[in-house]
């Protein structure tokens, strides 16, 4: 038991610099990027907007509820559901900010490949969701 506790504490201690770094970066993005900025990056283009949504969602940080609120506001401002879906899926699944931490703890190649696949699938999930909603 003592050995397990020591091993866990050691492993956890090693991750503290990374967790603090990610947390400091998330705090900076939350304060430096106002929610009103998100609406300005969308163009109204059906093909381009889902990609923009996925890029912005990948860079953004914070509680997923924030992405729902911003997404709701974006729809009210005329941004397509396709773009908003890509935005909220990328918000929770991609994460540029935590990429260095993920690379350190799970392997750089793993983190990079997962990052790329999750980015592409954020767009795919958004397209499929919008398509299915039209069919229903």
């Amino acid at each position: 038991m003592k050995r397990s506790l020591g091993k866990t504490a050691r492993s956890f201690r090693q991750t503290i610099p990374l967790l603090l770094g990610v947390l400091l970066l998330v705090s900076l993005v939350l304060v430096a990027v106002p929610a009103s900025l998100y609406a300005r990056v969308f163009t109204g283009n059906t093909i381009l907007d889902p990609l923009i949504g996925a890029v912005v969602g990948s860079i953004a940080a914070g509680n997923p509820i924030t992405s729902y609120i911003i997404g709701g506001e974006l729809i009210a401002q005329g941004v397509s559901i396709l773009a908003v879906a890509a935005f909220i899926v990328a918000w929770v699944t991609v994460g540029v900010i935590q990429l260095p931490a993920e690379g350190e703890m799970l392997g750089r190649r793993f983190a990079l490949i997962r990052f790329c696949i999750c980015f592409l699938s954020a767009v795919a999930v958004a397209v499929l969701t919008s398509f299915t909603l039209v069919l229903i």
């Binding site: 729902y68 609120i69 997404g71 709701g72 729809i75 559901i81 908003v84 879906a85 899926v89 699944t93 999930v125 499929l128 969701t129 299915t132 909603l133 229903i136």
Partner: peptide, 15 residues
């Protein structure tokens, strides 16, 4: 509340 239950159910299923 923001997107409706159909959107939520479909999105979660695809995820």
């Amino acid at each position: 509340y923001y997107f409706g239950w159909t959107f939520t159910a479909v999105l979660y299923l695809y995820i």
